[in-house]
């Protein structure tokens, strides 16, 4: 009996569905007409306009500041959490620890956003860049912990014992053996945290204060209140950046097993 063609057709139809709006968006960013309906002429006019928007550059600075600080803190907390979850798996403390790390991954963002806003309001904390960064650490932590935990599953702890048998102290073992071997996992988690932080809109919007506009908040207000051609151009730039990052990181992780052999 011949295998059914349905799965193949569905797959390629979905992929077409994924890329159709993106392709049109990119094409429109080079269209000098204000609305995408007709093609006036090919131009870089919207890109040049974009360069002159100071607000966007300021928002980008805020976004990068938040993303870098949230990534660093969540990498430290997440790695230590993953280590605890793996090393002491099965203990009652770790069962509790696991559920509190897992829940933020599935909970809708809006719940986390509002609950943190209420928390900051109740404590009379001034809303701003710091509150956004704190909120970002809270959700990035879980992603880093899960990524590192996945790496730890294939980690051979005999190496740690070997190091200790050879006279390495506790600190040396962690610093010279464990961390370098886990580095790819920690970096992958960090990269994920950085991307999620840069892209986050809902949680940031809830805990943002005056003067702490991030790039997604800026894009949201541009979508809501006009300036479509500028967002086309800005979106295209963001698309090029993320596509390059993903393809490069895919390439790097594919090379890795070969290098290990």
């Amino acid at each position: 009996m011949k295998p059914s063609r349905v799965p193949m057709i569905v797959t390629w139809a979905v992929i077409l569905f994924f890329y159709l709006p993106i392709v049109i968006l990119v094409a429109n960013s080079f269209n000098s007409s204000r609305f995408g309906g007709s093609w006036e002429s090919t131009s870089l006019k919207w890109y040049i306009r974009l360069m002159q928007e100071d607000d966007i550059w300021h928002a980008l600075q805020n976004t990068l500041f938040i993303a870098l600080s949230a990534t660093l803190v969540s990498m430290v907390l997440g790695t230590s959490a993953a280590f605890a979850l793996h090393r002491f798996a099965g203990s009652r403390l770790q069962k509790l620890h696991y559920s509190i790390i897992y829940t933020p991954l599935v909970l809708p963002e809006i719940l986390m956003g509002l609950s943190m806003l209420l928390f900051f309001v109740a404590l009379k904390v001034q809303l701003g860049l710091v509150t956004i960064a704190i909120a970002h650490v809270t959700f990035c932590l879980s992603y880093v912990a899960m990524t590192v935990l996945a790496r730890l599953q294939d980690f051979d702890f005999a190496i740690v014992e070997a190091a200790q048998d050879l006279g390495a102290g506790w600190w040396t073992t962690v610093w010279r053996v464990l961390l370098p071997m886990l580095a790819p996992g920690i970096l992958a988690g960090g990269l994920l945290a950085f991307t999620l932080s840069i892209d986050d809109f809902v949680i940031s919007f809830f805990v943002a204060g005056p003067g702490s506009t991030t790039l997604p908040i800026k894009i949201y207000s541009m979508i809501k209140y006009g300036a479509p051609p500028l967002i086309n151009a800005l979106s295209t730039i963001l698309l090029v950046i993320t596509f390059t990052c993903v393809i490069v990181s895919q390439y790097l992780t594919q090379q890795e097993p070969k290098a290990a052999k």
Binding site: I15, F18, Y19, L20, P21, I22, I24, L25, N28, G36, T195, D199, F201, P216, I219, Y220, I223, P228, I231, N232, S235, L238, L239, T242, F243, C245, V246, Q250
Partner: peptide, 19 residues
Amino acid sequence: VILPFWTSFLVRIFAWKVL
């Protein structure tokens, strides 16, 4: 499949608004 998954959430919604 992963590429759009990593693309900005707002950009993807906006792309549909344009379409």
